[in-house]
Amino acid sequence: MLELRLVQGSLLKKVLEAIKDLVTDANFDCSATGFSLQAMDSSHVALVALLLRSEGFEHYRCDRNISMGMNLNNMSKMLKCAGNDDIITIKGDDGSDTITFMFESPTQDKIADFEMKLMDIDSEHLGIPEAEYHAIVRMPSAEFSRICKDLSSIGDTVVISVTKEGVKFSTRGDIGAANIVLRQNTTVDKPEEATIIEMNEPVSLTFALRYMNSFTKATPLSSMVTISLSSELPVVVEYKIAEMGYVRFYLAPKIEE
């Protein structure tokens, strides 16, 4: 028996919009810790890890650990039927091959349930080791989105370099080249407008912009994004979900063969 009641249902709607273009089918895992997912894109270049902690739900009942295979496009179709202010409850019964999404309007005058078929998905979990990152950049998520979009009109790849001067995003294409440098800036009115650069060692890595642009679909989830870089490790692009958890995207770098 599974019953997860999320008062801020819009969070789940935003999570699906953030990941559905990257991953087609995925197993959602439910345990005492929370509602989570780990899945790779079809080319096994990017990985998404989602955690919605149990404490973030108004009601969280999960009698035993369960893994439920879902088609994210179908799940998104159903969640789009929930209003932005709706309370969403996810319900499942042991051994059932369906899951139910219940949507309640804030005034309780409309209650809908949508039943979705589950699917068997063979997926192996990857162990993500704790790593010391050479550099961690925390910046406004809208700024990061803007940079990825702007650079992708010039080139296909972005070189992200962190030095003591700041963080540089560079690309090159048939029509020319572009460099965008951000310096640390903590003298802003609001903390969500700050750019904070922690650097232990300079680092420079190359990534496909197509994936970076896909990650920025998570921008509505958080005003800030954290980009963690280490040489020869996948970059981590993290969007924190207020008081609940996170969506983390890992992207393998382009490397010299």
């Binding site: 270049v45 990985l47 080791p129 063969e257």
Partner: peptide, 14 residues
């Protein structure tokens, strides 16, 4: 020339 690495190069299946 750089080529695209895969995630499994860095993270092992658990």
């Amino acid at each position: 020339l750089k080529s695209q690495a895969r995630i499994a190069r860095f993270f092992r299946y658990s």
